[in-house]
Design a protein around this nucleic acid. Structure first.
Length: 146
DNA sequence: GCCAACGTTGGC
DNA sequence: GCCAACGTTGGC
């Protein structure tokens, strides 16, 4: 199983919005990604993989965990390219658990063991990879047991 | 509101 | 295929 981190601006779509949808038995299409590296990461995701939900701009913190419930499929909100091909894709996600204590970007940057986190190194990438070691540490920092 | 980082576009 | 110009993201 692989681990990921996905960003969303909470005033557009927050972790709480995802919790509400999940409680209704619905999944959220992670649409709107228009960056090849981020898309490639979504293509590499498998059902059952887990991802951190990061609030960008407002909060700047990891607020919870979600699970990939459907593999990458065409993003219905995206235009086709000149050849009529699908370029942009998205996965479907559901919430798993909120962090009892959100982990802020400032804390992450102040933690030497997290210097290699893609969120820090590739700050503009909206869908990034998280190693098993980074995942375990961030879970602990967020107040959850591995 | 500013700016750094970086991706994309388009002229050559 | 290079590179300058421009747009976007996202932290500060």
């Amino acid at each position: 199983m692989a681990y990921w981190l996905m960003k969303s601006e909470p005033d557009v779509f927050s972790f709480d919005d995802l919790v509400v949808k999940t409680a209704k038995g619905e999944a959220e299409e992670w649409h709107g990604v228009r960056n090849y590296a981020a898309r490639n990461n979504m293509r590499a995701m498998q059902v059952g993989d887990e991802a951190f939900f990061y609030h960008s701009n407002i909060g700047k913190e990891i607020v919870g965990i979600m699970r990939i419930v459907a593999p990458a499929h065409p993003d219905s909100t995206a235009d086709l390219n000149a050849r009529g091909e699908v370029v942009w894709e998205c996965v479907d996600v559901q919430s798993v658990k909120p962090f009892p204590r959100p982990v802020t970007l400032a804390e992450i940057k102040a933690t030497p063991a997290l210097e290699t986190l893609e969120l820090v190194k590739l700050s503009r990438l909206s869908v990034s990879k998280v190693s098993a070691e980074e995942w375990a540490l961030l879970l602990k920092m967020g107040g959850l047991e591995p």
